[in-house]
Design a protein around this nucleic acid. Structure first.
Lengths: 249, 249
DNA sequence: TAGTGGTCTAGACCACCGA
DNA sequence: CGGTGGTCTAGACCACTAA
């Protein structure tokens, strides 16, 4: 069953001309995730079932699933099965939320929406989200607090066509969970650019801080499974009692 | 040859009571790296040779080497062999140096040593580096410039026993390369804590900046292969034309 | 106890590299 | 061309989970 099918899907750069079978299997399974064949938290079929269905050996399916587990797309549990990764607060917290208290405590912040609007994308938004001219975006501005103390003010921009009707909803605390549950959009990776800045007047007022105080600016672009821009978010954080934790290996 | 040897080595937390063979193989190979059996850049024996020598199958050696490649300890090249990872500027740049120009350019900075001294570790150094009382540390203060413009001032503390004689040397641009080549100490991972701060008088003078300007403070602890603290480094960075890049998946 | 993922082996063949 | 790592298969057995 060694047919080198000519599936063409998203993914990393390939040497073009050779596409390992397990890579093709991975891509086909990711396609099913994108299509919502299995909901987050649900178990996939067992390795043996998938192998039989796809006409490859169990070892090849295993290698594909291992790769997906390394990408945090599925969770494997010995004796139980392989499950579609969930975007609950716990996962987000450890995967994408890197702000930690100086005492080492991680606390997921509460959020308060300050403004929500719908408008044509401006030049910056079009560039960041790779949008065509005249595409509409949803803009959210919110204040996030940890233990009652306001520490982050953030401006979020979303392509409206990807999230139809979101502008009319009450945004929950955990936006990535909403994207996944209600719009089938999975945030698979992010690219963050950090700078130190002086807090501007508007942000200072929202945060209850003195204008000009140093703050950490986090410019984040979130990408979907297909590596399409999903969300652009600029956060301004007071880091007096917090820090951004980055572990490199 | 399925003897579950009772090798006890560094590494992640184990369920204690079961230690996969490939894990044991990995640990034995890491032990050899630590002992300097193969120098950085040198090829390891082929999978088949290692398998024969260690009395396991080629597949098991492969799994161990794959794990080590994922940890950036070795580099595998199809058709050539498996090589001990080098700590040259290129590798450091992409693995541990996360500052990128706003134009997307990565430039390894030039360094100028401002001060170098040898002293008993103070309380903060003992805590960070997990040192016994009265251990001596080497302190280096240096200024780093990109394209001639000073952008980083950093204070480095090293356990003197781990780097005997370093205090009398002229520190090169790339310290991690020196640690590896001259002292057999490999920096395998780092933990960085980022904050926004106002530049203090002393740092401002070194950087040629105005005191009070916002800057990015990076508090980095570097760990060896055995997960022992190797270096404590606090960098203060001007991020007007730079940013810290963090990619999360 | 049945079913899952995890480990280990053995062997075949493929892609890639350098002499 | 020979040697390397990379892929794929098939099958045995182990560790873990839930009923």
């Amino acid at each position: 069953m060694n047919e080198k099918e000519l599936a063409e899907l998203s993914g990393g750069v390939e040497s073009l001309g050779f596409r390992p079978l397990y890579r093709q299997v991975r891509d086909r399974l990711i396609r099913r995730l994108v299509d919502g064949v299995w909901a987050p938290g649900e178990p996939l079929p067992s390795e043996i079932q998938l192998a039989a269905e796809l006409g490859v050996s169990q070892g090849t399916v295993r290698k594909a699933l291992d790769a997906m587990a390394a990408e945090n797309l599925v969770v494997r549990r010995q004796g139980r099965g392989t499950f579609v990764a969930r975007h609950d607060e716990e996962r987000i917290m450890f995967q994408f939320f890197k702000l930690v208290g100086d005492d080492g405590q991680r606390t997921f912040p509460q959020s308060k929406v300050l403004a929500l609007s719908l408008a044509r994308a401006n030049a910056a938004e079009r560039a960041a989200l790779k949008l065509a001219k005249d595409t509409r975006v949803i803009r959210i501005r919110r204040l996030r607090s940890i233990k009652g103390a306001p520490v982050i003010v953030e401006n979020i921009a979303l392509p409206e066509p990807m999230f139809p009707g979101l502008a009319a909803m009450e945004p929950p605390n955990n936006l990535y969970g909403l994207y996944a549950m209600r719009f089938g959009v999975t945030v698979a990776s992010t690219r963050e650019q950090l700078k130190a800045v002086a807090v501007c007047e508007a942000d200072a007022e929202a945060l209850g801080a003195t204008p000009g105080v140093p703050a950490l600016k986090i410019d984040r672009l979130a990408l979907s499974l297909e590596r399409q821009p999903v969300e652009w978010r600029v956060s301004v954080c007071l880091t007096e009692k917090l820090h951004y934790l980055s572990e490199l290996r």
